[in-house]
Each structure stands twice: as C-alpha cells, then as structure tokens.
Simulated assay, not measured.
Amino acid sequence: MKTTLALAALLATAAAPAFAQAVTDPAKAEAGSYAIEPEHTRVRFDVTHFGFTKYDGEFRKVSGTLVLDPAHPDASKVDITIATDSVAVPNAKLKEELEGAQWLDAAKFPQITFKSTKVAKTGADTADVTGDFTLHGVTKPLVLHVKFNAAGTNPVNKHYTSGFEARGQIMRTEFGVKTYAPMISDAVAIDIDAAFEKAK
C-alpha cells in the first residue's frame, strides 16, 4: 500500500511541471488546427421520463475538428460527427430501441453532426457557438453555450490539448423523433465535455 502511494505521489510530482503550463485564459491558448481526443470527450443527453425522473445517456463514438483562433474568436470553427449507433444507456433493450426506426433510426441516419456557422464571445472564457445540427436527416440551427476550460500540454501523452464544455437543447419532434412525446419530453438537454488535441 505504501509503495503504491509513493509511486502515485512520484508520478504526480513528475507531471506537475507540465500540467502547470496549462492556461485558463483562452486568449493564451495556441492557435491552430485540432482534432477531437475521443477518450476524454463525452456527449451526453437527458430527457424527462413521464414526468417522474430525468433519464440520461450518451454517445460513445465522437470525432471532429476545431480551428482555434484565440486572437479572433469569431473566426474559430468546429465540426463534430457522432456515430448514431454508439448511443449508450444502462438498458440493452432500450439501446436497441433507441437505435431503431421509432427513434434515431441509426441504419438510415448513421451520423449526427454539428457544423459551426458563427462564434460570438459572451465573456472572458465563454462564447455562443451557433451551427447547423443534423439529426434524423433534419438540419436545424443549434446554439451551444461554450466555456473554455484550459489548454496546455497533456502530461501523459505530451499532446497540446484544449478543453471545453458546452450546453444546449433541442426539441426532438422538430427533427422527426416523435415517439412518446410529450410523455417523454420533447426537450432534450445536450451536455458536452470535449478535449481537442493540436495537430503536430
């Protein structure tokens, strides 16, 4: 036990100098082209289930790119692709149902996408990112409220990484996903934590 704790402390100490270089001011992040780091990127959603509880799930396969311009935030761009059949919920039968024709119809619509069209700074480390959101074959505008977390060299893999969190909401019936609405809420909250690694 003591050996394990000592090793953990040693690793933490070794990583500290690299991690200390991380910046929380987006103006100090490195400009350039980035790609999603999928292992630490999460796209979650939740709905109200018959008015009794909230029920959530997530999508496990996410890819995409980011062009980051800290000096001119409005020139930044993000493009995200989600594999529809990567939906994950605690119940295997529900996963199968969600991927079926009544809900997401993953066979017909294998991708969910978001392509930014406008970035508007709203605070020192926040922005509203408007984009074209495509779900179930329907494309509509979506605004994501985005917060910059930090940027710096990942002490483990040594990749320069920028991290963000984003929140948004869609009305699923507007995209043709109408099953059990409004008993299962039309409004779907979207919660994203995204890590992007800079291209070398």
Rank of each mutant, 00 (worst) to 15 (best):
Met1Ser: 12
Thr4Cys: 00
Leu5Tyr: 09
Leu7Pro: 03
Leu7His: 10
Leu7Trp: 12
Ala8His: 12
Ala8Ser: 09
Leu10Glu: 14
Thr13Phe: 11
Ala16Gln: 11
Pro17Asn: 15
Pro17Leu: 09
Pro17Lys: 15
Pro17Trp: 11
Ala18His: 11
Ala20Met: 13
Ala20Ile: 07
Gln21Asn: 14
Ala22Gln: 13
Val23Leu: 00
Asp25Thr: 11
Asp25Tyr: 06
Asp25Arg: 13
Ala31Arg: 08
Ala35Gly: 02
Arg42His: 12
Val43Lys: 05
Phe45Tyr: 15
Phe45Met: 09
Phe45Gln: 07
Asp46Asn: 11
Val47Pro: 01
Phe50Met: 14
Phe50Tyr: 14
Asp56Gly: 12
Gly57Phe: 05
Glu58Pro: 03
Gly64Ala: 08
Thr65Asn: 09
Val67Ala: 09
Val67Pro: 00
Thr81Pro: 00
Thr81Val: 15
Thr81Tyr: 00
Ile82Glu: 06
Ile82Thr: 10
Ala83Thr: 14
Asp85Ala: 11
Pro90Gln: 14
Asn91Cys: 02
Leu94Tyr: 04
Leu94Gly: 02
Lys95Asp: 09
Lys95Thr: 13
Lys95Gln: 12
Leu98Asp: 02
Glu99Trp: 01
Trp103Ser: 05
Asp105Gly: 04
Ala106Phe: 03
Ala106Arg: 05
Ala107Met: 07
Phe109Ser: 05
Gln111Phe: 00
Thr113Val: 06
Phe114Ile: 08
Ser116Leu: 11
Lys118Glu: 15
Thr122Cys: 07
Thr126Asn: 11
Thr126Tyr: 09
Val129Thr: 09
Thr134Ala: 02
Leu135Thr: 05
Gly137Ala: 08
Gly137Met: 12
Gly137Leu: 13
Val138Lys: 05
Lys140Gln: 04
Leu142Thr: 02
Val143Ala: 04
Val143Lys: 12
His145Arg: 15
Val146Arg: 07
Val146Asp: 10
Lys147His: 09
Lys147Leu: 06
Asn149Phe: 09
Ala151Cys: 08
Ala151Glu: 10
Ala151Lys: 10
Thr153Asn: 07
Asn154Pro: 02
Pro155Ala: 11
Lys158Val: 08
Lys158Asp: 10
His159Trp: 04
Tyr160Glu: 13
Gly163Tyr: 00
Phe164Thr: 13
Phe164Gln: 05
Phe164Cys: 10
Glu165Trp: 03
Ala166Leu: 09
Gly168Thr: 14
Gln169His: 04
Ile170Trp: 01
Ile170Pro: 01
Met171Gln: 13
Met171Pro: 00
Arg172His: 13
Arg172Gly: 02
Thr173Phe: 01
Thr173Ser: 09
Glu174Gly: 08
Tyr180Ile: 03
Tyr180Gln: 10
Met183Leu: 07
Ser185Asp: 07
Val188Asn: 02
Val188Leu: 01
Ala189Gln: 13
Asp191Trp: 06
Ala194Tyr: 03
Ala199Leu: 06
